[in-house]
Design a protein around this nucleic acid. Structure first.
Lengths: 129, 129
DNA sequence: GACATTCTCCTAAGACTATCGTAGGTTGCT
DNA sequence: AGCAACCTACGATAGTCTTAGGAGAATGTC
């Protein structure tokens, strides 16, 4: 049975990001070309990882000629939500507010980031009354 | 040799949080009492984890009678910075701004969180001119 | 002194991750 | 038909994470 946990390792994130960005199904070769053009990882390593991602229910396998193709089986936002919840739980006692505070407080945001964030907050407030 | 990477696994975060919160050196038993009062983990498991944390340079070992005591060797903020940078790199193409946007956009913040965040932004802006 | 308790230290199994090699199938060119 | 290029499937290895048991030292109690 497919596993349920919507969590990804570092290497898995790299690959999922390529595939989410692509918008169309990709082969192992295409992921290689885009993400590891200098063979930073072996072809078979990427292949193995992508097969694991199928097992995890993250990717869906298709066929294009002889080659397997892979497309997302879950939305990036869903994985993002699950992963960020885990981060919040581990590092901020479960509080997303504390995480936001950290970002501002720890000087992680540029001037532009701050301006954009403020604008976003204004818009949100308006939307919700 | 001590390792350098300022990264923690899930179980390691649990323990480090207890010790950072305490403010004083703690024994394995004390960590057990505070975090696993119902023996959710075996004593020796916690002990092993704490020894690993010493190896990683996260904890410093002391003595209190026969028992070892453990205190933080690194500041929580330093580990938070390193870990959040990793998260940003993996999940938000390295952008903390994108992470902040996500928090607001994905409805992860309560009314209070948003108000507090806005106040914080105001104060920051004032501080920097 | 004997016994229970409480430590420490050492060891290790099981799962997951990351890495890659090898064997063998398809395709297409000459 | 033969060969190179490319693909898949499978297996092997090493490392980390999580968990915990067992041996043996120190301490407290009777």
């Amino acid at each position: 049975m497919p596993r349920k946990k919507l969590e990804l390792s570092a290497a898995e994130w790299e690959i999922m990001n390529v595939i989410w960005d692509a918008g169309t199904p990709l082969t192992v070769r295409e992921v290689m070309d885009r993400r590891y053009p200098k063979d930073e990882k072996a072809y078979t390593t990427v292949q193995t990882l992508m097969n694991i991602l199928v097992d995890k229910g993250m990717l869906r396998r298709g066929k294009q000629g002889i080659a397997n193709t892979y497309s997302p089986a879950v939305k990036r936002d869903a994985v993002l939500d699950a992963s960020m919840s885990t981060v919040a739980r581990r590092m901020f006692s479960g509080s997303f507010g504390a995480m936001a505070t950290y970002l501002v407080h720890a000087n992680k945001l540029s001037e532009e980031d701050i301006a954009a964030l403020r604008a976003l907050l204004d818009r949100e407030e308006e939307r919700h009354g």
